[in-house]
Nucleic acid binder design. Structure first.
Lengths: 117, 117
DNA sequence: TGATTCCATAACAGGAACGTTATATACATA
DNA sequence: TATGTATATAACGTTCCTGTTATGGAATCA
């Protein structure tokens, strides 16, 4: 099962990628379908190299995949790693929405995850 | 309804706060209940001022609240803003449902929680 | 009062992040 | 072949982030 221990570089990268408004907007754009770098860059007031680097950050976080189409590089959304982020949040959100009775079980689960590392 | 536009400083702060493993661990600790700064700092190999600053980052992101108890400053989890992050992810996850199969139920639950507010 | 505990803030250093412009590379086309 | 288009990378500067040590303030206790 998914690790939820102290250190988790994958979550670092995912949340770090999501913390930038340009990158969130890029993901929003890609949610409508794959797009080339220039198509992605068009609405933003920053340079093309800056966009290329944002794309690399998203790629390193596993949030997008890239493919080659002639001289263009198309980017597509990759949902799996975003699921990891949603899963982390959801996991903890349970602590604030469930009764204290169930808290112990959830805590035991967390503890187990940490020990799995 | 919640804004999902290009810029959203609140999401910047929330995702930025979550991108650090120490801060995620602090939230995990606080999920077990309120704690003082020293109690929070105890398991970490970093100095108390460093912990104090992490707490300030979490507070600025609206992820924790603080209260005074004699000479101690207790911190508690504050779920609302974390739901904003979950909501952002959830919103876009609609487009990638293929890879979100097993999370659908949980996300629906989250959605319900948000509507209850 | 004086000492101790708990926590915050200031000042600083090292490195990461994000932007820029300039340039290189690869493919497409005339 | 020469040229234009699409994208990546290099080099650089500025700002932000995270840690440190030193210190200050408030509450507690001897």
């Amino acid at each position: 099962m998914e690790s939820l221990g102290y250190e988790n570089p994958r979550l670092d990268a995912i949340f770090g990628a999501l913390s930038d408004p340009t990158r969130r907007a890029i993901l929003a754009r890609l949610a409508k379908g794959k797009a080339s770098v220039n198509e992605i860059a068009e609405p933003f007031p920053i340079s093309q190299p800056a966009i290329s680097r944002h794309l690399k950050v998203l790629e390193n976080a596993g949030l997008i995949a890239r493919e080659v189409d002639e001289q263009r590089r198309l980017a597509t959304i990759k949902g799996e790693n975003l699921k990891a982020a949603a899963g982390w949040i959801d996991h903890f959100s349970q602590f604030w929405t469930t009764s204290f009775d169930q808290l112990d079980g959830l805590l035991a689960e967390l503890q187990k995850d940490r020990e799995d590392e």
